[in-house]
Design a protein around this nucleic acid. Structure first.
Length: 321
DNA sequence: AATTGTCTCAACCGCTAGTCA
DNA sequence: CTGACTAGCGGTTGAGACAAT
């Protein structure tokens, strides 16, 4: 943890330093600063982060405010220890996506890229290493990693349930109940498609009336997070494959996210999952929506191709007016 | 009880990409 | 086209917490 710089040391008042820009604070955030930022964000929503810093009366750079909000203050954060299911999912996603922490985080409701990155570097990495102290390419290690490429359907559902009933949901409800009978959430920059239960259009809107948004919309459902194997190939029947963001065709869902322009070509995804989906037509579990992924290999999927003919983003009601 | 080593994680840094004048 | 500005990402740092000696 970094020591919070004292305000006296870091703040140069404009009074006795004409023309000088106030020195920005660094280091740990004080409760008062947190309070200021939370209050500002809840009442004004996210705008330009440098404006947020200025208007909230914080001697912080916008970048610092953004980080603090995203990683710590955002009301929907889950916090606490990672569940075994989350852990498995992280390992699996990392085997598919590599160190794309933000994309991994986008598939884990209430978790931040920073949190996942730390968890990976401190815990999982070590665990996988310990599983095979002599050789990282040993069968044990391969099993530890590739064995997680498929997740048990019930485990996924359990994660959906856990996610949708998490205490963070309640806390968000509490924060928004006074203002409205539905959750008009603050914009959450890292939540794009691929995180449907919190994503645009699904974000808690149905939860207030007793519905269960996380389950109804499907933690991995409507945007095609999980492809159910049809038997044969590496994805067995009843097993679930979580495709990389870049690989998901949204055409059948009629949904896309213009914000996701990350044109990763997936060259580092040359693992067995390619073989698994290549030559196996796998159907989505989304009420009859199917993605035809026949003949597709990750390295060949270009985002431009995926995005063409996709109708404009149809759900922007979470945007701050 | 004191010291040392290790772990955890909040926050920073540097970089890239997108936007706009 | 260019440069300034901003958002976002991944890597790294470092201080506090905790465990071991």
């Amino acid at each position: 943890m970094r020591k919070p710089d004292s305000p006296a040391k870091n703040t140069t008042t404009a009074n006795n330093n004409t023309g000088a820009v106030n020195k920005l604070r660094k280091g740990l955030w004080s409760p008062e600063e947190d309070d200021k930022l939370v209050k500002y964000m809840l009442s004004n929503g996210q705008g330009c982060w440098s404006d947020v810093a200025r208007n909230a009366g914080l001697q912080r750079c916008g970048k610092s405010c953004r980080l603090r909000w995203i990683n710590y203050l955002r009301p929907d954060l889950k916090r606490g220890a990672f569940s075994p299911q989350e852990e498995e999912l992280i390992i699996h996603l990392h085997s598919v996506l590599g160190n794309r922490w933000s994309q991994i985080a986008a598939r884990l409701p209430g978790r931040t890229d920073n949190e996942i990155k730390n968890f990976w570097n401190s815990t999982i990495k070590k665990r996988l290493k310990n599983a095979s102290p002599n050789n990282s390419e040993s069968p044990e290690t391969k099993e530890a990693v590739s064995g997680l490429a498929t997740l048990n359907e019930h485990e996924i559902m359990a994660m959906c349930m856990e996610s949708s009933t998490s205490s963070s949901t309640s806390s968000v409800r509490a924060m928004y109940n006074n203002a409205s009978d539905r959750y008009d959430p603050l914009p959450l920059p890292c939540f794009g498609y691929g995180m449907p239960s919190y994503g645009p259009g699904n974000y808690f809107h149905d939860s207030v009336g007793g519905g269960n948004a996380g389950v109804e919309s499907g933690l991995f459902g409507s945007h095609g997070m999980v492809i159910e194997g049809g038997g044969g190939g590496l994805i067995g029947e009843g097993e679930l494959y979580v495709p990389p963001l870049e690989s998901i065709s949204l055409e059948d869902n009629g949904m896309t996210n213009n914000n996701n322009n990350n044109n990763n070509n997936g060259n580092d995804n040359n693992n067995d999952m390619n073989k698994a989906i290549s030559g196996n037509s796998v159907g989505g579990n989304n009420n009859g929506n199917y993605w035809e992924v026949e003949n597709m290999r990750m390295g060949e999927w270009e985002l431009d191709d995926l995005m063409k003919d996709v109708p404009p983003f149809a759900f922007l009601d979470f945007q701050v007016e």
